[in-house]
Amino acid sequence: MASLTTRLGPLRLKNPVLTASGTFGYGQELEPLVDLSRLGGVVCKTVTRHPRAGNAPPRTCETAAGMLNAIGLQNVGIERFVDEKLPYLRRFDVPLIVNVAGESVEDFAFLTRALSAESGIAAIELNISCPNVAHGLDFATDPTLTEEVVAHARAATHLPIIAKLSPNVTDITLIARAAEAGGAHALSLVNTFVGMAVDVRTRRPRLSNTTGGLSGPAIKPLALRAVYRCARAVQIPIIGIGGIMNAQDALEFLIAGANAVQIGTATFVQPRAALDVISGIEDYLEANSIGDVTQLVGSLVTDSGK
C-alpha cells in the first residue's frame, strides 16, 4: 500500500484530502452518509466572533458547470460553536481545522486565541477571502494587511495557521508571499471567484447579494494555475481548492504543486466525494508504482522546465 501521509508544516494528516469550509457544515449533517474518520481532515464552516444571520435569499444559483453562492457567513458565533458544535466534532478520529473570519486584525487574533484554549483543534484556517460580506476581501487583496493579520493570529496561538487566499487579485503570488512572511504554516487556495448571473425575464440579479462566489468545475483550470504559481513562489505547503470533483482533478492539483486538497462543491452533489477522491488517489499511486503521495507533489513534467 502506498503511503498517503501528508504534512502541512507541523500538521500531520493520514491522507491529503480535506473538506472545504462551508461545504461540510459542522460534520453533523453528513455523519449518516460519510465515515468522517477516513478523511484527511475536516475544515468546518466559518466561525465569527458574533453570530451572523447571513444574506437574504436567493443565496445560490447554478451556472454552467458551477454555482454562485452568497451565503454571507451564516453561523452561530464562537461562543455557541465552542459550546455546541465543538464537542460533537471532537469525537471523531480526524484532524479538525476551524475556519475563522473577522472584520479586523483584532477579531482574527481574538478568535484564534479563543480556539487555542479548546482541546481537539488541529489547526486554524484564516478566511481572509470571503467575497460575500462587507470587507470580506479587504485582507486578501492587500499584501500588507495579509501579512499583518497572519502575524497577529500566529502570535495568538500555538496551533498551525493556514491562510485561505482569494483569487480575486492581480497577482496571487504577492499575497501568498505576504502570508508566508506573516508566519503562515500553510496556504489554502483558492476561495471562490466573484461572479454574477442575471435573470433576463425579470432583469434582476439571480442572487439577492447581486454578486456571489463561483465554485465548481468551471473554476478548476483557474484554481490550478493559481496553485501552480504559488507553489513556485513560496516554501510553505499549499492546499489546493477549486472545482475538484474526483480523484483525477485532485491529482492534477498535487502534480501542479499542492501538498493536499480540499473538496467543496462536489460534496453538495456527492456527499462521499472526498472519500472517493482518497481511494482514487490510492489507486493511481498503486497503478503507477508510486510508494508515497508526497513524491507526486509538484512533479509536473514540462519541456521548458518552467
Partner: peptide
C-alpha cells in the same frame, strides 16, 4: 445545492 443542510443555500 446540497439538500442535507450543509450549504445554507435554501433558506427562508
Amino acid at each position: 445545492p446540497c439538500g442535507i443542510g450543509v450549504c445554507n443555500g435554501c433558506v427562508v
